[in-house]
Design a protein around this nucleic acid. Sequence first.
DNA 1: AGCACGCCGACT
DNA 2: GTCGGCGTGCTC
Length: 812
Amino acid sequence: MQFADIILPLNLPLTLTYGVPVELQGLVQPGMRVEVGLGRNKIYSGLVLQVHNFKPEHYTVKPIRNLVDEAPVVFPLQLQFWQWIARYYLCSLGEVMHAALPAHLKLMSESLLIWNDMYEQPPTGLSDNAFIVAEALHIRKQLTIGEIRQLLDGRNTSKAINELLEIELAIVTELLEEKYKARTERYVFLEAAYEAEQKLQEAFAALEKAPKQLSLLLTFFQLKQQQAGIPVAALLKKAKASAAQLNALAEKGLFRFENIATDRLPSGESNGDAAFTLNDAQQQAFTAIRKGWADNKVVLLHGITGSGKTLIYIQLIREAIAAGKQALFLLPEIALTTQVVSRLKAYFGDELGVYHSRFSNNERVEIWNKVKDGKYKVVLGPRSALWLPYQELDCIIVDEEHDTSYKQYEPAPRFHARDAAIYLASLHKARVLLGSATPSVESTFNAQQKKYEYVPLKERYRGVSLPEIEPVSAKNTQVALSGLMTTNLLDAIARTLAEGKQVILFQNKRGYAPFLICGACGWIPLCKNCDVSLTYHKQTDKLHCHYCGTKSAPIKHCLQCGNTQITTRSFGTERIEEELQRIFPKARTARMDWDSMRGKNKQSQLIEDFTRGRVDILVGTQMVVKGLDFEQVGLVGILSADSLLSYPDFRVNERGFQLMEQVSGRAGRLDGKGHVIIQTFNLRHPVLQWVKEHDFRGFYQAEIGMRQQFGYPPFTRMVRLTCRHRDMQKAAQGAEALAEELQKIPGIFIQGPAAALVPRVRNFYLQEIWLKLPREAAPLQQGKEGISVAINAVMQQRGNAALQIIADVDPF
DNA sequence: AGCACGCCGACT
DNA sequence: GTCGGCGTGCTC
Ligand SMILES: [Zn+2]
Ligand SMILES: [Zn+2]
């Protein structure tokens, strides 16, 4: 007897073992989806992890019911990758599977109620709900549980269903359906009989009095030279004919129709062999990258904005394709709307697959298959592109490697795509290139330690020079704008606009008024689900909670003392745009933040407008840094540098430096007159000095010293454990119990528990424990295993069932 | 994730 | 008394 360990896309601690029935022996392979029963009568498509001969001792196995696939949909290498993710990031294989497989490859049965034909009609004596279901069932003959829930509005469905099953009015079966549906298109073919010359002549003759049909037939033959079947839509369009005319020909027996599965993904033509040459600096960097790779090292390419990293990437990808392998190009999701996509498409055409969150579930399956079949040689995508089934990767390029969006937080697996990419590459024996204008402290440290090869690319492409950075004291602000914009900034904006150049203003708060307070008693409107203050949004005329998304009616008077004077503190992007319109009425303003970019093509539209000079002043949050890739702006203003440099996180300086450096990169200009103004109440903040001098080295030296002194990464590894419970007491007790269990682990440093920065979100109370672990692989893994044990111990304690413990390895 | 089992409040 | 609410535990 053979057995198979099956992964189900659920948060189960382990795989489940099923028996391989005789008729499936030899057919079940790792990576295949199989139908398995779970619990009373659910059927899932699970994924085979391995097949073996070890009979489980403590329970009797259920058999695999059937195969879903004839061949594996997941490669063995991917299963290894999943197992590493689960181990390293402290989550279950099921959670990894859930994240990795496209939704339409994960099947779960739905219960189907079928009318029993022994009954002629619904009997009397049923409860109201059961009667409603019985009547519907009588007409429709079968209903899914979902349909019944809809019918009864979700109330008391199980009772009604049990009532019907009791009297055998209906029987229940489980239905496991393939979710992926190929898109089909109607094609028209010439009937075989008309392939004969003479028969065809007759047909043409008979059409003399129907010129429209004749011309349609001629168009058909014109197109038929390329392919036998012609898409109906294309034919009608080309012939400018109607469906009725086509049907008339079909009725005469000339044509037959067939529905053929087609590709959902648009195929782009490449520019053929678009030739380009690397300049000297690029060529040098390219050679250095190849050398680093030859030494089996990860390469860190430190190239300032506008140094032309993309061309180097393209050249490396070309070589990967030439070697008959695949390449993966990772980007932060938000950067996938920029010109990079069209640039790569121009070079790689149909061999390039782009992956992002806007694809439908059916499209994702098609992308999955094209990667698996090797039709895509290059994949450009965000962190989720790591899950695709690559046959053989030659290289992985992680651009903007410092970017925080590479770290997934919710839900598990809480992985870092840059780090996971390095492991995935090692499985493929592929090479890794990390690229950034502001490399992370971790990667720079690895380069310093000679673990990575460091390749600088200093020269700015096309001779664009670095902008002048001017920190200005925010004390020097106009009274009317109470701390919003300094006269330096206002003057600079006016000057820049007068020169016909564009302005970008950066403010890290969205909405209109991020903070409201009663002028009389100091009362602050708070979210009812979270421990945070609410932000007023003018666009919706509502108060928004940025943690749970709840929108509530705006406050007209204080709920505590009744005072009608509610004052606002701080300025969001909405308010800034409004003020700018008032101060610079002739300037065309635009806003780029989470709220204004929600629509489908909003972001690409804005980029288009900005590039074509249809926007004079752009106000935005982080998005203006990450979501734009042009660098021809006259002035960049950072309205409040202090908010970027004062929050409790050991990476605060790193983030602040990276952000301001990246923002500055937007202000490089060919004429060498780019200008950046940074408003602050602390002109002497060291980060501002480093930014001012573009002094990456100085920043790094200071930062790495601090990390070493206080035992932060890269000198240690951190794990954050969050206890989440609806009850404040239970959350705190759970965290205490967890901390106690953690004490048993040797060699780890425990900080906490303490309430999270925001102690309550969506009505869940959050308690955090921060752990420092040794960075060496073996004791690190030992420590993590200890953490798993501790979590399990706490979860098994009575009364902790509703407690959630979230482990976040290498938190960001 | 579902689903069954079991223990308490508010209805006949 | 029972009906049904949800908190708890399990799925090979
Ligand atoms: Zn008040
Ligand atoms: Zn909230």
